[in-house]
């Protein structure tokens, strides 16, 4: 579902964010992305979301080669990638429902369809009763779950999460990890960037470790291997 082939990303100032990164994630695979601050985690996620383009190498998402993707095609790629942000990126000028509905709105889904799917997503994260509230009235954990509902509302085949448990206590973190596991079980490819080592160790999943832009562990699984068949370390 996600494949990096010899991907290098260099910024203007001779700063190499990623160097010859190789890995592949299959459909339904759940993996962690770890590394110290500045190791290139965010660059890697940005390459998948086409917020950045690689300096060299190939990024392939869902069979689509992203290097040569014209700018106007980018939105259509992003509709297939759900993203959960550390700072939630929720809009406080509208209800929880309207926040979650945004990915459907940009796709031009009908109101009936939208209502059904938004409620299904909110139900999944256990916030159905709060759809009419403003996200600002919710706790941090609840806001994070609204963000997750928004990321999965249009059933994307890929789900990226950036420090999804960053500000949450262990119990809430476990809840959220549980949600991610469920998504991977229905075929969603999940990639979670985190530096919560305890969590990573507890989950016992494949872990991609970046160090100064190089992938030092968990890389290069062969395409076509069964999901979940590879684990890190």
């Amino acid at each position: 579902m996600i494949e990096f082939r010899q991907v290098t990303k260099r910024y203007d100032s001779d700063h190499t964010a990623l160097a010859q990164v190789n890995f592949a994630l299959n459909r339904g695979e759940l993996a962690f992305l770890t590394g110290h601050s500045g190791a290139g985690k965010s660059t890697l996620l940005k390459l998948i979301m086409v917020m950045e383009r690689p300096t060299a190498g190939e990024v392939i998402v869902g069979g689509q080669q992203l290097n040569s993707l014209p700018r106007r095609q980018i939105p259509y790629i992003r509709r297939h990638i759900g993203v959960v942000f550390q700072n939630h990126q929720l809009l406080f000028d509208r209800t929880v429902f309207d926040n979650v509905a945004m990915p459907l709105e940009v796709m031009g889904a009908s109101p009936r369809d939208t209502g059904r799917r938004v409620r299904a997503a909110l139900d999944k994260v256990g916030l159905l009763s709060k759809e009419k509230m403003n996200p600002i009235q919710l706790s941090g954990g609840e806001q994070q779950r609204v963000g997750i509902a928004r990321a999965v509302v249009n059933k994307p085949p890929v789900l990226l999460a950036d420090e999804p448990t960053g500000n949450l206590d262990p119990e809430l973190s476990a809840d959220i990890m549980n949600l991610f596991t469920q998504f991977s079980q229905v075929g969603v490819t999940v990639l979670i960037a985190t530096h919560d080592i305890a969590l990573v160790n507890e989950m016992q999943r494949r872990t991609l470790t970046l160090e100064h832009g190089r992938l030092v562990a968990g890389g290069a699984a062969l395409v076509g291997q069964p999901p979940g068949g590879v684990s890190g370390h």
Partner: peptide, 16 residues
């Protein structure tokens, strides 16, 4: 600004 950012992140086209 925030709204525009989110719309672009979830795949809103330029026209949208």
């Amino acid at each position: 600004r925030d709204e525009i950012l989110v719309a672009k992140l979830v795949g809103g086209t330029d026209a949208f």
